[in-house]
Design a protein around this nucleic acid. Structure first.
Lengths: 195, 195
DNA sequence: GTGTATGTATACTGATCTGTATACTTTATG
DNA sequence: CATAAAGTATACAGATCAGTATACATACAC
């Protein structure tokens, strides 16, 4: 029933500011004070909503996870009518993403680089996200009639990661097109022609 | 004339310890005290060799840059006789790398995630490393007679980044083989057959 | 309207951060 | 052997870290 709200709640303000700072500067480099200052909310209120910084980080990553999943599905579904077209639309989505001013690479890849401990819940969330993304690509591969959907999905997923990291480093969104070019080759090879 | 030394100099001990900690825990999360403790060298000595933490970070990244360039060239040159074989050997190198116990992803990719400011010298070093690696791959592509060496190098470089990140996240070195499989397809397509 | 939730403002704690200072010890070299 | 460089040990300074405490203000439900 979620009635839409005009203004953001304090919680939403905090999570939005935290996300922006985590994405730009990393998690360890972002202090509570900076989040509090940017959000315009007091520290007391922050700790009324989140028990600790880690809980805030986890909440932000989870929310971003969900939003990113929805956004990619929405754009991919709009971007292609056939399953093959939707697979390629993944890389059109990537290009738009890379072009954003606030693109600082994949939040999850960056987070993994800061938390190597296997036990870290932050790592867990990142792994789940990537797993679900690969699952989605595999679904599209199945729908497209790939002879080995899992294998093709692994290839395309890896390609997307590579394009993301390369775009982050080179500050050049064209890497998405290079990846799309490769994707075409892999898709044509992995999906048997009909007729 | 570099006479080989039995024990490491203090400087080398510091850089070795710093590298290990940066790779495992990230740069921001690694304090000077931790580096000092691990290296068994006092803080005073550290600051006699490096003016600041940033200078130490830069020195460590530069040294790793050089070592990594040498190591990949060595292994690639040993791993294949033909230019095509050497291109594929890049991914054999990757597999060995991913299998190491102290593999925590690419140091440079992780560092970039912590320093988004374009002005940051750390970013600069990371960009240079990736540029030089792509340059090396392009050389191999030229030697292999690729019709578009630059384009093929971009594709293969991106693939390597993707494999690295995916191995880091999934903790599974087999991503190197997936990347190699894709590389074969791209190489066969990008290098005109003779005869 | 009146109390309770939730918020602000601000000061604080104790730990940790980068970097420095002081006093002593080892080590290499002429 | 004498001396200077380089290192140890340790304490410290000032900033910033995550998180808490106190006192006051606002907004909303009954």
């Amino acid at each position: 029933m979620n009635k839409p709200r005009a203004r953001l709640t304090k919680r939403e303000q905090l999570m939005k500011s935290a996300l922006e700072l985590f994405a730009k500067n990393g998690i360890h480099a972002t202090g509570i004070d900076a989040i509090v200052e940017r959000s315009g909310v007091t520290k007391k209120t922050l700790y009324a909503h989140f028990m600790s910084k880690e809980e805030l980080v986890v909440a932000v990553l989870r929310q971003y996870d969900e939003q990113a999943r929805n956004e990619i599905r929405r754009q991919v579904e709009n971007g292609g009518k056939t399953a093959r077209g939707r697979l390629l639309a993944v890389f059109d989505f990537a290009e738009k993403w890379f072009q954003q001013d606030d693109f600082y690479g994949c939040l999850f890849i960056n987070a993994i680089g800061e938390f190597s401990e296997k036990s870290a819940p932050i790592r867990q969330i990142c792994m789940e996200y990537k797993k679900s993304l690969k699952g989605y690509i595999r679904e599209l591969c199945e729908q497209a009639g790939a002879s080995n959907p899992q294998g093709l999905a692994e290839e395309l997923g890896m390609l997307l990661e590579g394009a993301t990291v390369t775009a982050q480093i080179s500050q050049n969104p064209k890497t998405a097109r290079i990846a799309k070019r490769v994707a075409k080759v892999l898709i044509d090879k992995g999906i048997p022609k009909v007729g």
